[in-house]
Write a protein that binds this DNA or RNA. Structure first.
Length: 497
RNA sequence: UGGCUCAUGGCAUAGUGGCUGUGCAGCGGGCUUUUAACCCGCAGAGAUAGGUUCGAUUCCUAUUGGGCCAACCA
């Protein structure tokens, strides 16, 4: 910003600073004594349907507080609109009904100032529920001008950088985050009702595990050692299963040192849960119940539209294996082609997928799946039978060791969840870690580390267990009809100004 | 990281190779039921750095920041 701009901005702020100076001379410029009794939404709910005459016979006193969003001065009387967290309430202020000098002060107050007002509830000639003010005071002076009152704040960058202004100006943004919190609250209750225990496991890990992703590195000074911000809590939660907690979940942030997009933020929220003596099929059912419950109990309907896709969660969610889904969306392909590494690799290359030498058949199949199927899975779909090669923590299928008892869950063409029956064979797990280490040595910096303590834990015996992780941000995007993950994060990651 | 695109008063927008308009907000004045209140007057602006040009906010290049797409991933 240029010096000129800076000066001009200061003109508006300087005007308000001058007003603040005057306030300081009168007394306490930042009072803290005001007690509010009423919320805007409660008053609307209680009296919104009364007609004008009703208030002649019923004197309702109300005391509200909030930010002045609109102000209309008409000589010796004025209207203003105060906004609190619940909504808006109009106040009517008359010079001759206030203490001496208060109306003159009111006229000097600016949009954005925080006010406290008390008076009688009434309806205006046009029928708007309002408060006929008997006393009003300034609670906090706002030094910076609000955005334009009709169009609000639309500049995307400023909305994200100064979310506080976005929240002041845009009702739908407040609503999105209210829904986000309601969904998380619902999920927490959903899990607790089923006997799951909420736990907290390390965010800073010596060995980052539980997913294939690049971690952030930080340093512990006293111990003089590098630590990794977790990419997933998985291996710690499964240690708790070994410890006998049997049903655990954690809702918290993961950190991945990858690119940003409309679906990716470096820190994002996941729920992971693990349940002893359950199978991946139990968890597909659990997931289905959870999503249906969110639609019904949080959003109010099993039928809704998000990003121009119509959903009806009263219908059962589809289940389809990786291979069958590829065949369904690529009708020209034959099953046998997908079972042969050379033929499958040729198909992938035709699709423009770069195939590395160390790719096995399973990896090639997944590449084909991601290229040709994933974005087309608009309706809720569990894709099952993931190859073991790309599932280093999942239990092998009893009938077909090439695949695992694993699924991913897709809605709107986006992966929302990933779950499987857990690999609890310590020797198989050790071998799979070795494969990951070999991949890492071959240059795959997203391959997993060998976690010897995790193997030791498995050697004590982890009961047959199933587990799942759900990306909360994407889930919230679905239900709030948000196109970008930034719209469901209060403070999305931005480069410094 | 690559492609496309955007950057004008506090906010929202328009136009232009030759003194940048408009609305809201602000300041002064008027107005005792308005609601994006209204009426009169005033003040305030082209991200940064270069280049082309008599002259650049406008054209070109680079930089910075944003958005979308692609890549990585969830």
């Amino acid at each position: 910003m240029s010096d000129d701009n800076h000066q001009d901005e200061n003109k508006l702020i300087a005007e308000r600073r001058g007003k603040l100076e005057d306030l300081r001379e009168i007394g306490n410029a930042y009072p803290n004594h005001f007690k509010r009794d009423d919320m805007a939404a409660d008053l609307h709910a209680a009296y919104g349907d009364k007609d004008r005459e009703w208030f002649d016979d019923n004197t309702i006193k109300a005391t509200i507080a909030g930010r002045m969003m609109l102000k209309r001065v008409m000589g010796k009387a004025s209207f203003a609109t105060l906004q609190d967290v619940s909504g808006r309430m109009q106040v009517y202020v008359k010079r001759d009904e206030l203490a001496d000098g208060v109306y003159a002060q009111f006229k000097s107050w600016d949009a954005g100032d925080l006010l406290g007002a008390s008076g009688r509830v009434f309806k205006t000639q046009k029928g708007e529920l309002s408060i006929h003010v008997e006393s009003i005071e300034l609670l906090t002076k706002s030094l910076r001008p609000l955005p334009e009152k009709f169009h609000g704040l639309t500049n995307t960058e400023q909305r994200y950088r100064q979310r506080y202004v976005d929240l002041i100006m845009n009702d739908e943004v407040r609503e999105t985050f209210r829904v986000r919190t309601a969904i998380i609250s619902y999920i927490r209750k959903f899990m607790e009702e089923r006997g799951f225990m909420e736990v907290e496991t390390p965010m800073m890990q010596v060995i980052p595990g539980g997913a294939a992703a690049r971690p952030f590195v930080t340093h512990h000074n006293a111990l003089d050692m590098d630590l990794y911000l977790r990419i997933a809590p998985e291996l710690y939660l499964k240690r708790l299963i070994v410890g006998g907690l049997e049903k655990v979940f954690e809702i918290n942030r993961n950190f991945r040192n990858e690119g940003l997009s409309t679906r990716h933020n470096p820190e994002f929220t996941m729920i992971e849960f693990y349940e002893a003596y359950a199978t991946f099929e139990d968890h597909m059912n659990l997931t289905e119940a959870m999503f249906r419950g969110i639609a019904k109990d949080v959003m109010g309907s099993e039928q809704f539209v998000s990003q121009e896709v119509e959903y009806d969660f009263s219908k059962p969610f589809e289940r389809l294996s990786v291979k069958d889904s590829i065949l369904q969306f690529n009708p020209e392909l034959k099953s046998e082609q997908l079972d042969d590494l050379e033929q499958a690799s040729a198909i992938a290359k035709d699709l423009g997928i770069p195939i590395k030498n160390n790719y096995g058949l399973g990896k090639v199949q997944i590449e084909i799946f991601e290229k040709t199927v994933e974005e087309k899975l608009l309706q809720p779909t569990f894709i099952t039978a993931y190859p073991a090669e790309v599932s280093p923590l999942a239990r092998r299928n009893d009938d077909n060791p090439f695949i695992t008892d694993r699924y991913e869950f897709f809605i709107g063409g986006k992966e929302i969840a990933n779950g499987f029956s857990e690999l609890n064979d310590p020797e198989d797990q050790a071998a799979r870690f070795q494969e990951q280490v070999a991949n890492k040595d071959a240059g795959d910096d997203e391959a997993m580390h060998y976690d010897a303590d995790y193997i030791r834990a498995l050697e004590y015996g982890m009961p047959p267990t199933a587990g799942e992780g759900i990306g909360i941000d994407r889930l919230v995007m679905l239900f709030t009809n948000s196109a970008s993950i930034r719209d469901v994060l209060l403070f999305p990651h931005m480069k410094p100004e």
